[in-house]
Design a protein around this nucleic acid. Structure first.
Length: 782
RNA sequence: GGGCCCGUAGUCGAGUUGGCUAAGACGCCACCCUUACAAGGUGGAGAUCCCAGGUUCGAAUCCUGGCGGGCCCACCA
């Protein structure tokens, strides 16, 4: 063995694993071995792995490696979530504006490069997916599955097309996503003006009087005494239009006058309320932000229109007062123009009316930790409208539909998939006979990623595999995307497409914060790059850090203390094996448990207990427990005591030596396997260099250890013996003696029968004469 | 405003079906090169378990109410 454990050892095994393909999923084992299917997260192809990836991916890599050793056939794919807005931004920055198909080509190119980088990082971190099972959401085969899944959902009645308000930038003349908006606080006027109910004035307050023409209702709180008798009546707007007065719980009684005019659309609450109360929509602005459908101010922008309307109200004597208030407006992040809500034709999936089914299915899944399900249930109970699955983007999966100006729409034939609008065959509308248009929009990226459990288990591709591999076993993911990834997956893969839960278990991890407890962010300059970390710490130390961070869906600061400790542990581990190396290579006799010395039976018993504890922890995804149990046992029992007890024997000759070597082999061989899922490199190295594994064999394909014989009474005896050893060391330390200094004579008092352990104590402590007397535990040095 | 999580040495944290002297790590102090390991060993100092009540023979743990922190969602027309 080398004197030190090094990076070159780790990369040597990474190469070996890749070349020997040991993680390949073997379909031939279906029916022979139980399956363990991981619906592993496809990372967004940003090109950079971050500490969150390291944490989360380490968890299910532990699971994969452990389950393989438990005799499961593990299906562990690696996907890539390649499509989406951030890529478009990067590509546009680099190449400027291009034609859609050229632009898409550049996006694909760029994504391949990012995938390459991330894949290298994953290999360096020792992850063990089957790389032949890679899937990439931007590829035609993946598009086909997404499109097929949506057409199937359409046929089952889950998908529809309708007018829906979207965030719109009037300056860029484009729909934008919520993520592309910024908030800006500004001062504005709050106008108070009168509507009339039965000729009595009703004052309402609004910051946007220019939308008055698109007012479709007045809302008041049901428990507001000021308005209790007018609920259900009609209110007349200053333009003479009659609108209903409706009670609505979410109206704030304290703001303004407590009466809200609902316009389509002033802000997001207008959208919610309009849908909730089934009100008509009057489009107030066109795509350039100019007023339409108004009595006398069409064509003006909102500022000019506002002035006109306020003048009108003043002239009519309807303006009561105005206040200056501060409020927040959304602006487009790139042009800083104020964002409007405009109705637009979009595609929808019916999540609202299926929320109970989604909830029921979520309850069939095991959530680790259990409270994780609250995030989903809470979300389900507050869904305001259906999922808008369409986007006006380019780098996305095309929506496989034809639409006609008469309003009719129908899906592409399944044999024509994957569908791309620029290559679409012409089609006549069966309703009006006109030429239909292929839809140009693309899907929201969550549409892509919400069928991953289907994709990995062979849906529509390999019926035999699918039958066995779905539902999948494990979905690992971050807690912050329960409301998106988990929710959409349960809805699509589960409720809508198969009727079966997508996974048995969902394992949630939290985020990695910076060591200072704040979020890692470029602007704070506290980002830790795993690829930098890897230069300073062995991968097996980084993976121990991940295990120590705990599987809870809880944010946790990154800890240099933990990772340093992990590195030191590897050093301790390495040196312990260097100590036993020469003995391990000797042929030794076999012994029965009862023939062994007490200390041998003790360490075997303790190892058995540790095997049970760690197995149990691994089963429950409690990696923190598994790793800390291992650390403590290995360092503070095995190294601190057993390896010391055994020295006098291994450096002499005879049967007691053979027993020690037999025990060391048995115990260390098992322990090295226990450590293998978390520290795959060092354990592989030791498996080969110490235990003489055959060429081409891997520890990761060996059997997980079973507990050995146990004699639990001995554990108590050794607690006494270890305490005596501790006191001997203390005595030597206090007297400034080296640990190997000899002691002439000592008297050991104990109530237990320590049998042959007395000899081990005497030899290990280098006491020439040790007298044992009955009495309270103590040792006197003479 | 709603929901969830959390509060234990200087720091990070285990322990929370109520029951030994409240683990362990990092850091700190003192000592020790000892044929695996100074990236080690031995010893030591350091905690009103956020606060206040309650239940109990007994509370870090259970209940109630505060205070403090974090996350997610919503948000003023």
């Amino acid at each position: 063995m080398d004197k030190r454990y090094s990076h070159s050892i780790e990369s040597k095994w990474q190469d070996f694993w890749l070349k020997s393909n040991i993680y390949r999923f073997n379909k031939g084992n279906i029916g022979k071995k139980p399956l363990y299917v991981i619906d592993s997260p496809p990372p967004f192809t940003s090109g950079k792995l971050h500490m969150g990836h390291v944490l989360s991916y380490s968890y299910f890599d532990f699971a994969a490696r452990y389950k393989r050793m438990r005799g499961f056939e593990v299906l562990y794919p690696q996907g890539w979530d390649a499509q989406g807005f951030p890529t478009e931004v990067k590509v546009e920055k680099k190449y400027g504006r291009l034609k859609p198909d050229e632009f898409r080509k550049k996006c694909v190119e760029w994504s391949w490069e990012m995938i390459k980088r991330m894949k290298e990082g994953m290999i360096k971190l020792g992850f063990s997916p089957d790389w032949s099972l890679e899937y990439i959401t931007m590829l035609p085969e993946y598009h086909k599955l997404v499109q097929e899944s949506i057409i199937e959902m359409y046929e089952k009645g889950y998908i529809y097309r309708d007018k829906h308000p979207v965030l719109w930038c009037p300056r860029c003349k484009s729909a934008i996503a919520k993520a592309e908006t910024e908030e800006k606080e500004e001062e504005t006027e709050l106008y108070y003006f009168n509507f009339f109910v039965d000729d009595k004035p009703l004052t309402i307050a609004s910051t946007r009087p220019e939308l008055l023409h698109a007012c479709v209702a007045v809302l008041v709180h049901p428990e507001d005494e000021r308005y209790s008798e007018i609920i259900g009546k009609k209110a007349k707007t200053p333009f003479g239009k009659e609108v209903p007065i409706i009670d609505e719980n979410e109206v704030d009684k304290e703001f303004g006058t407590g009466a809200v005019m609902l316009c389509t659309y002033g802000d997001k609450m207008d959208v919610v309320w309009q849908k909730r109360h089934n009100l008509p929509v009057i489009q107030a602005l066109d795509e350039r932000g100019r007023v339409i459908n108004s009595p006398f101010y069409d064509g003006l922008n909102y500022k000019e229109a506002r002035k006109k309307v306020v003048e009108f109200l003043e002239e009519k004597g309807l303006l009561v007062k105005k206040d200056r208030i501060k409020h927040v407006v959304k602006v487009h992040d790139r042009c800083k123009h104020e964002v409007e809500l405009l109705p637009s034709m979009e595609w929808f999936a019916r999540v609202r009316e299926n929320s109970d089914k989604i909830k029921e299915m979520a309850k069939e899944i095991k959530w680790v930790p259990e409270f994780g399900i609250h995030y989903l249930i809470d979300w389900l109970e507050h869904i305001d409208w259906d999922w808008v699955i369409s986007r006006d983007r380019i780098f996305g999966t095309p929506i496989p539909f034809y639409v006609c100006e008469c309003g009719h729409y129908e899906p592409v034939k399944k044999e024509e998939l994957p569908f791309y609008p620029e290559k679409a065959k012409p089609r006549k509308c069966p309703k009006c006979g006109k030429e239909m248009k292929p839809e140009n929009k693309v899907f929201d990226v969550w549409v892509d990623s919400s069928i991953t459990p289907l994709v990995v288990s062979g849906w529509k591709k390999d019926e035999e595999l699918f039958k066995h591999a779905y539902p999948t076993t494990l979905r690992p993911q971050g807690v912050e995307i329960v409301r998106t990834w988990a929710f959409y997956t349960i809805f699509r893969s589960g409720v809508a497409l198969t009727g079966k839960k997508p996974w048995d278990t969902i394992l949630l991890n939290g985020n990695v914060l910076a060591p200072d407890g704040r979020k890692m962010s470029k602007s704070l300059g506290n980002v830790i790059d795993p690829m930098e970390l890897i230069k300073e710490y062995p991968v097996d130390a980084i993976r121990q850090w991940a295990a120590m961070s705990g599987a809870m869906a809880k944010d946790r600061p990154f800890s240099y203390e933990d990772i340093r400790f992990a590195k030191q542990f590897l050093n301790k581990y390495w040196n312990a094996f260097r100590f036993v190396e020469k003995f391990m290579k000797e042929n030794s006799n076999e012994f029965n448990f009862n023939e062994l010395r007490t200390v041998d039976r003790w360490i075997i018993t303790r190892t058995s207990q540790v095997i049970e504890e760690i197995t149990n922890a691994m089963e429950n995804y409690d990696y923190r427990k598994a790793i800390t149990t291992f650390h403590h046992f290995f360092w503070y029992e095995l190294c601190d005591y057993y390896l010391e007890y055994v020295k006098w024997r291994v450096y002499s000759e005879g049967i007691e030596r053979d027993k020690a070597i037999y025990t060391l082999k048995k115990v260390l061989y098992a322990l090295n396997k226990l450590f293998a899922p978390i520290a795959p490199h060092i354990t592989e190295e030791i498996y080969h260099s110490i235990f003489g594994a055959p060429e081409g064999k891997s520890i990761h394909l060996t059997k997980w250890p079973e507990p050995f014989e146990k004699d639990e009474a001995i554990v108590e005896d050794l607690k006494v013996a270890n305490e005596i050893m501790r006191r001997i060391r203390e005595y030597k330390a206090r007297n400034r003696m080296p640990m190997n200094a000899e002691i002439e004579k000592a008297i050991l008092y104990t109530n237990r029968d320590l049998k042959d352990v007395v000899e081990d104590i005497k030899r290990t402590g280098k006491i020439k004469e040790l007298i044992v007397k009955h009495g309270e535990l103590n040792i006197e040095f003479l």
